[in-house]
């Protein structure tokens, strides 16, 4: 067993870090009137930055009308502000047994891939002076590290990632319910999981976070085998989390399996889209740095489009 020091960088994938470290992840929080009369902003020392205009509708607070625009255009617009503050990011990493798949062939398991992504995102947060925390879960919240910006906090998280093993089944509904209640302050919740769980549970869990106005990003990590089902010979499939096994001709089942998978993933995307959640499918056969940087670039472009409108 290697020492903590030598394994510290296990999930710090150099190429990945290199790609994403220049990007800043800003939580896009739409703040409407959080600066209410009489309450001082709890966020001391932080600028409140103008974000965008929107057209005045009856009932809006007259104090937020942009009179300069009115003088020029004779039209009423409300100023919206983006609160630039220290982001609190919660990384939720699935450590159920199903995340072990991929290890047998000597490559990366889904957990390895997800953990690397988690580490990369944590590192990025820290670079941006944002607080990042880690929650590992299976059928319960196994370990929880509250978000912190302390330099040694990252090491703590990495260490935790390296020590984490995958066991137990996936069972999130109650776990996430509790977690959502704990996280009072709005922040970002990034879920990294293979999402091989009942979709109602997932939907309920994600809804909990959205109700509390957290920004949620879902990274679904799947192995290439799970996505393509490349098996040809007679195979005995033994379930990781399900106590079942199946001796089958894979070619006979491939089409139906992929259809079932596709239905599941479509449903997941629908759930995410309905809740305003970003969804990213991570294929463990694809380089992680490309996948992450691709997503982050997309997020950046989306934000600039919104802020640069006027």
């Amino acid at each position: 067993m290697s020492t903590a020091d030598s394994r510290e960088g296990q999930y710090l994938d150099a190429p990945t870090l290199d790609k994403i470290k220049r990007l800043d992840v800003r939580a896009r929080l739409v703040v409407e009137g959080f600066m209410t009369g009489g309450h001082r902003s709890p966020y001391h020392g932080f600028a409140v930055e103008f974000a965008a205009h929107r057209e005045y509708t009856p009932g809006d607070d007259l104090r937020h009308i942009d009179w300069k625009v009115w003088s020029k255009t004779d039209r009423l617009y409300i100023k919206e502000f983006e609160e630039e503050t220290n982001l609190k990011c919660h990384l939720l990493l699935d450590r159920s047994k199903s995340m072990l798949y991929g290890k047998a062939n000597g490559g990366w398991s889904k957990f390895d891939y997800a953990a690397t992504a988690t580490a990369s995102l944590a590192y990025l947060m820290q670079q941006q002076q944002d607080a990042v925390g880690l929650v590992t879960f299976s059928n319960q919240i196994d370990r929880q590290f509250k978000p912190s910006t302390h330099p040694s906090h990252l090491k703590l998280l990495f260490h935790e990632l390296e020590q984490t093993s995958c066991d137990k089944q996936t069972e999130v509904s109650d776990a996430f319910l509790g977690l959502a209640a704990q996280i009072r302050q709005r922040g970002m919740v990034i879920l990294l999981s293979d999402l091989l769980l009942p979709l109602e549970d997932l939907a309920k869990s994600l809804r909990q976070f959205r109700l509390r106005r957290h920004e949620v990003i879902v990274f679904q990590v799947m192995h290439a085998d799970e996505l393509t089902f490349p098996f040809d010979e007679n195979t005995l499939f033994k379930g990781y989390e399900v106590d079942a096994q199946l001796l089958a001709e894979p070619r006979a089942l491939r089409k139906s399996y992929l259809e079932a998978l596709d239905r599941h993933n479509s449903e997941v995307r629908k759930i995410c889209a309905g809740a305003g959640i970003d969804y990213v499918l991570l294929d463990t056969s694809k380089p992680l740095d490309v996948a992450l940087s691709s997503y982050l670039s997309f997020r950046l472009r989306s934000r600039r489009r919104l802020t640069g409108r006027f």
């Binding site: 047994k97 199903s98 995340m99 072990l100 798949y101 047998a104 889904k110 293979d194 091989l196 192995h223 799970e226 098996f231 010979e233 007679n234 195979t235 005995l236 499939f237 033994k238 379930g239 990781y240 989390e241 399900v242 079942a244 199946l246 001796l247 089958a248 089942l253 491939r254 089409k255 139906s256 399996y257 259809e259 079932a260 998978l261 599941h264």
Partner: peptide, 17 residues
């Protein structure tokens, strides 16, 4: 004669079967 594979997405497989 068969290979043995520990499989995560068992539900989909069982459904397909």
């Amino acid at each position: 004669r068969y290979k043995i594979v520990d499989w995560a997405a068992m539900d989909f497989l069982l459904e397909a079967d």
